[in-house]
Simulated scan of single mutants.
Amino acid sequence: MNQTLNYLKELLAIPSPTGYTEQVMKYIGQEVEKMGYTPKRTNKGLLIVSVKGENDQQHRTVTAHIDTLGAMVRAIKPDGRLKLDRIGGFPWNMIEGENCTIHVASNQKEYSGTILIHQTSTHVYRDAGTAERTQDNMEVRLDEKVTSAEETRALGINVGDFVSFDPRTTITDSGFVKSRFLDDKVSAAILLNLLKEFKEQHIQIPYTTHFMFSNFEEVGHGANSSITPETVEYLAVDMGAMGDDQQTDEYTVSICVKDASGPYHYAFRNHLVELSKANQIEYKLDIYPYYGSDASAAIRAGADVKHALLGAGIESSHSYERTHMDSIKHTEALVKAYLLSQLV
């Protein structure tokens, strides 16, 4: 678990909004190469680590996505501040007050700023607290001496530059992990740690398995390509969403039975339940009503596979998220038990 946590902290420190993931993919590639694997990059940008199993005729695919929520510069306002366009699904109030970084394409420079509503000062605006947070009144206050669009453009900033949010990662003595983008860097850290463990302990897995790190999940099409024709089972390791009417918590692994795409494969999810019971893994079954995964994207793309979804329980998903080390532990244990099990 210590190594999983180390991977998680390093992944969280690398900005990776969807479409701007080369740096984090480079990090993952270097880590798996150090382990002794030979990763493959697809045209779309997926990174795949294929591990040969005892059975090379029937394959498994397991995924985690490393792309995160973020934004792009939509326009430069007359006063030099920036208007944003969202990447991924989140309401504007979830990022109000957050520090951010503008990644300038033209000169590779980075500038810091803060995301605020235009009517920020309560001493000036009567509706500072009640104004609806929309694209039209949310803006980036740059930490540069700019007071006009021309001065901002002189920095090299332009429409289309990516904007990443400060993850504000904190690990408490009580075992909580607080950070943006635990969705889905917790899962990526788990897969990295399992790859390391399998290699160092010379563990032979029963079926050839493709570990896919996807880079377009937050916009819906994720790891829906480059699936080998031999793949018969597809497991997405993502997150469990918490809230009213949800069973998911921060201390167990959440097994999804249905999301916005419909039910997951019945026998597959039952297999995960039985593995949990047999290995004393604490789990919860749940439905995520407004949710999709790499596995559901693969099904929509026409993949002929049994698909399932599990993940650590994440509080306040798509906002300032939190989970507990217990949930990460149980999630990793279930993924490992599955990879060592027989086919559904």
Rank of each mutant, 00 (worst) to 15 (best):
M1R: 10
N2H: 15
Y7F: 15
K9S: 09
I14R: 11
P15E: 14
P15S: 14
T21D: 08
E22V: 10
E22R: 13
K34V: 06
G36W: 00
Y37D: 08
Y37V: 11
K40I: 11
K44W: 10
S50T: 15
V51K: 02
V51W: 02
Q57P: 02
H59D: 09
T61H: 01
V62A: 06
V73Y: 01
A75K: 13
G80V: 04
L84H: 04
G88Q: 08
N99F: 11
T101C: 06
T101K: 00
Y111P: 03
I117G: 12
H118W: 05
V124N: 05
Y125F: 15
A128E: 00
G129S: 10
T130L: 14
A131E: 11
N137L: 09
M138N: 01
R141A: 13
V146S: 07
S148C: 08
S148L: 00
S148R: 05
T152I: 09
A154W: 06
A154F: 08
G156F: 08
G156L: 11
N158W: 00
V159F: 00
D161I: 01
F165Q: 02
F165W: 08
P167T: 12
T172R: 10
D173P: 00
F181K: 02
D184M: 13
V186K: 01
S187M: 08
S187R: 02
I190Q: 06
L192P: 03
F198I: 15
Q201Y: 07
F213V: 11
F213T: 09
E218K: 13
H221C: 13
A223K: 06
S226M: 03
E233G: 06
A241C: 12
M242T: 15
D244F: 14
D244L: 14
Q246L: 00
D249L: 04
E250F: 07
T252I: 00
T252Y: 05
V253Y: 05
V253I: 14
I255V: 14
C256E: 03
V257Q: 09
D259F: 00
D259K: 04
G262V: 04
P263A: 12
H265N: 11
Y266R: 13
R269F: 05
L285D: 04
Y291P: 01
A303C: 07
D304N: 13
V305A: 03
H307N: 10
A312I: 05
A312M: 03
A312P: 01
G313P: 05
G313V: 08
I314V: 15
E315I: 07
H318C: 08
Y320K: 12
R322K: 12
M325L: 11
I328N: 02
T331Q: 12
A333E: 12
A333G: 06
V335P: 01
V335L: 09
K336Y: 14
A337Q: 11
V344Q: 09
